[in-house]
Amino acid sequence: MRLAVALLVLVAAPLAAQSGMPPAPYAYTQLEDPALEAEATALMYTLRCLKCQSQSIADSDAPMAGDMRHQVRSRLLAGESPDEIRDWLTLRYGDYVSYEPTVSSTTWPLFAIPLLLLALVGFVLLRRLGKRGTDEGKSA
C-alpha cells in the first residue's frame, strides 16, 4: 500500500508542478495604442524564444514567450524604450535572447573569427594565384 502511494505521489508531482496561473495579461492581447503595439511587435520579432530557440517571441506559443511578450508590452506602456527593454531582457536571459547581438567582451570572437577566416582564405588564394602566374611566366 505504501509503495502504491509513493508511486502515485511520484507520478502526480510533475502534474502539481504545472502552473495553474492564467497567462500574463499582455501575453496574447495587443495594446490599444497602434503605434505602441507596432513598436512592441517590431521588438518582439528581434527577440528569441528561449524555449523554442528557432522562433521569435512574436511567433512562439510557448508560455515563456507569452511572459516575454507581456514584459515587452507592459514595459512599453510604462514608458521604457525598446533599447531599454532589450537591455533588460539581455541582462536577465543573456545575449542569446537577441537576434541582433551587440559586440561585447563575450561576443567579439563571433564577429572577429569570420573576418579572420576570410582574410586567411584571401591570403592563401592570392599566394596560390601569384605562384601560378609566375610559374606560367617561367615556362613560356
Results as ranks from 00 to 15, higher is better:
Asp59Gly: 08
Tyr28His: 11
Pro34Leu: 09
Ser56Cys: 07
Ala12Gly: 12
Pro34Thr: 04
Glu32Val: 05
Ser60Ile: 06
Thr29Glu: 12
Arg48Ser: 07
Tyr45Glu: 04
Tyr45Ser: 04
Pro25Glu: 03
Ile57Leu: 07
Ser60Glu: 05
Gln18Arg: 08
Ser54Lys: 07
Leu31Ile: 04
Lys51Val: 15
Glu32Arg: 11
Pro23Val: 05
Gln53Arg: 13
Ala35Lys: 08
Ser56Arg: 04
Ala58Ile: 01
Leu36Lys: 14
Thr41Val: 11
Ile57Ala: 01
Ala40Pro: 04
Cys52His: 14
Leu31Lys: 05
Thr41Cys: 08
Gln55Tyr: 00
Ala24Cys: 04
Glu32Gln: 09
Gln53His: 11
Thr41Ser: 14
Gly20Gln: 09
Lys51Asn: 14
Tyr26Gly: 01
Ala40Trp: 00
Ala27Cys: 15
Arg48Lys: 14
Glu32His: 08
Ala35Ile: 15
Ser56Pro: 04
Leu43Tyr: 06
Gln55Leu: 15
Leu36His: 01
Arg48Ala: 10
Ala42Asp: 09
Tyr45Cys: 01
Thr46Phe: 02
Glu39His: 02
Pro34Gly: 02
Gln53Val: 08
Ala12His: 13
Gln18Glu: 06
Lys51Tyr: 06
Leu43Glu: 00
Pro23Phe: 00
Ala12Met: 15
Ala17Met: 05
Ala13Thr: 13
Arg48Phe: 10
Leu31Gln: 05
Thr29Gly: 10
Gln55Met: 09
Ala58Asn: 09
Gly20Val: 08
Met44Lys: 01
Ala16Met: 06
Cys49Pro: 02
Pro22Lys: 10
Leu15Asp: 02
Ala38Met: 10
Leu36Tyr: 01
Leu43His: 00
Ala17Val: 07
Glu39Val: 02
Tyr28Val: 06
Asp59Met: 11
Leu36Asp: 06
Ala27Thr: 14
